[in-house]
Design a protein around this nucleic acid. Structure first.
Length: 419
RNA sequence: GGAGGGGUGGCAGAGCGGUCGAAUGCACCGGUCUUGAAAACCGGAGACCCGGGUCCACCGGGUCCGAGGGUUCGAAUCCCUCCCCCUCCGCCA
């Protein structure tokens, strides 16, 4: 949600910023509704003021044992007009709210126009032998066929050593994050509409979200949703910031509209586990925190010895809530290209305003909307793909990173062989 | 799932048609006192919207007692719907 006052006070700046992502069309409508609302308000409020003082007079008269019948009769008419005006205002307010809710965040000046590769780290290895992809390497440790029979396409059974690998990845990542001040959290994954609206996934990406048939609940596509909502409607003292959380949860995505894309293996599935970073920060610290989160994502990839590159995502690709986003793309030998593995967004005040999360300045003064950021620490499925494909040997076996071994991961995975 | 009880300011907790943005206690922030602190005493604190004032610490009005409707001249207080919490029973990882 954008700050209406900001748009009102400098419409041209808002228009220009939104134009970068092709969303400036609604600004004029918004300003019109705002004006309409502010012309209705004083009239309604003066009626209410009249009503309030009359009520006091009536109460005083009754206390004095007098007759207030006349005043009461007069107020009846005022009440009728108030109700009428109130209905008109509510109608305008409703249209204003939905127009405002439909607008995406203002892009950061440093957000790229087009996807821009910032740096490349590690050597993309192109093996002499034809590389095997993760399904071949995993063999029967990934069973897509059985999952398809049970749940449909884009689901998987993960088995044996890969389960140990996942648990080690998760534990290792949580430990790392905890050291960086991120408190581990296992959040609810079934959430109300308000949580999705508050994070900007509704109304933006409705077709991507699973909804329950018999309860007003949705399956979260990322723990960003319940983590952001953790402090909804709170005013947090500035001294307590930043608040950092590391959420671990399954994530559910319908992938509607992705038919035919990434159909092989577990790259794009309806359900996967993820360790997610989320931060509530002082607005002045937002940009710095974004870089910090990115650097943690890079720490993870380097520790796992996955070649990657960092992309400043173009404004056209930003989610509604993001002002700026970095993706870390891992080199996948079997695909011969870099693919998105992690991602981090600075959502500035967009989610915080929708969720009414504010900061009380330590020097006193009015509470102000704080800033939120999120980033992937480990998207387990895709990380497993990257580890398998980059760790493969000529014989089809896989060597896994040593950092995970103390956390219970196998040192290597034997050749999967024909399935 | 069944039966009760309840949601009020940062917390606890009164109020159950008008004098209630709301008693009281705790916590918090000033002040007095003290060598300093504690205690005691005095005082002050909420959020949001609109308008005025050159921004503001200012002024006026409006809204907010879980959410949304309703009754009434007037609702924290009465009625309806929904959400949430607690207790007991049932069921169950």
């Amino acid at each position: 949600m954008l700050d209406l006052r900001l748009i009102r006070s400098d419409p041209d700046a808002a228009r220009a910023a939104l134009a970068r992502r092709g969303a400036d069309g609604a600004v004029d409508e918004l300003l019109g509704l705002d004006e309409e609302r502010r012309s209705l308000l004083p009239e309604l409020e003066s009626l209410r003021a009249q009503k309030n003082s009359a009520s006091e007079a009536i109460a005083a008269a009754k206390r004095a044992g007098g007759d207030a019948a006349e005043a009461i009769g007069a107020m009846r008419e005022v009440g009728r007009r108030e109700k009428e005006l109130d209905a008109r205002l509510a109608e305008v307010q409703g249209r204003l709210d939905s127009a405002l809710a439909a607008l995406p965040n203002l892009p950061d000046p440093t957000a790229a126009d087009e996807d821009t590769v910032l740096r490349q780290v590690g050597e993309p290895r192109i093996p002499a032998h034809p590389p095997r992809d993760h399904l071949e390497l995993a063999g029967d440790l990934i069973d897509m066929d059985a999952a398809a029979r049970v749940a449909g396409s884009r689901f998987a059974y993960l088995k044996g050593d890969l389960v140990l690998l996942e648990l080690a990845l998760v534990r290792w990542a949580l430990e790392l994050l905890r050291g960086g001040g991120f408190e581990p959290v296992i959040p609810p994954v079934l959430v109300r509409e308000e949580a999705l609206y508050g994070t900007g996934f509704l109304p933006d990406t409705e077709q991507q979200i699973y909804r329950l048939a018999d309860d007003p609940l949705y399956l979260a596509g990322t723990s960003e949703v319940p983590l952001a909502s953790l402090h909804a409607e709170e005013i947090i003292a500035q001294e307590r910031l930043p608040l950092r959380y590391a959420g671990f949860s399954p994530c559910f995505r319908r992938e509607a509209g992705a038919a035919g894309r990434d159909t092989r293996g577990i790259f794009r599935v309806h359900q996967f586990d993820k360790v997610e970073m989320f931060a509530f920060v002082d607005p002045a610290e937002g940009a710095e925190e974004h870089e910090r989160i990115l650097s943690i994502e890079e720490d993870v990839l380097r520790a796992l010895q996955i070649p990657y590159r960092v992309v400043n995502i173009g404004v056209a690709e930003l989610g509604a809530s993001a002002a700026k986003k970095y993706d870390c793309e891992a080199w996948l030998p079997a695909q011969g290209r870099y693919r998105e593995l992690t991602s981090c967004s600075n959502t500035t005040d967009f989610q915080a305003r929708r969720l009414q999360i504010r900061m009380r300045p330590s020097g006193g003064g009015r509470p102000m909307v704080l800033h939120t950021l999120n980033g992937t620490a480990v998207a387990v499925g895709r990380t497993i793909i990257a580890l398998l494909e980059n760790g493969q040997r000529e014989d089809g076996s896989v060597v896994l990173p040593e950092v995970l071994v103390p956390y219970g991961a196998p040192e290597r995975i034997a050749a999967g062989g024909p399935r």
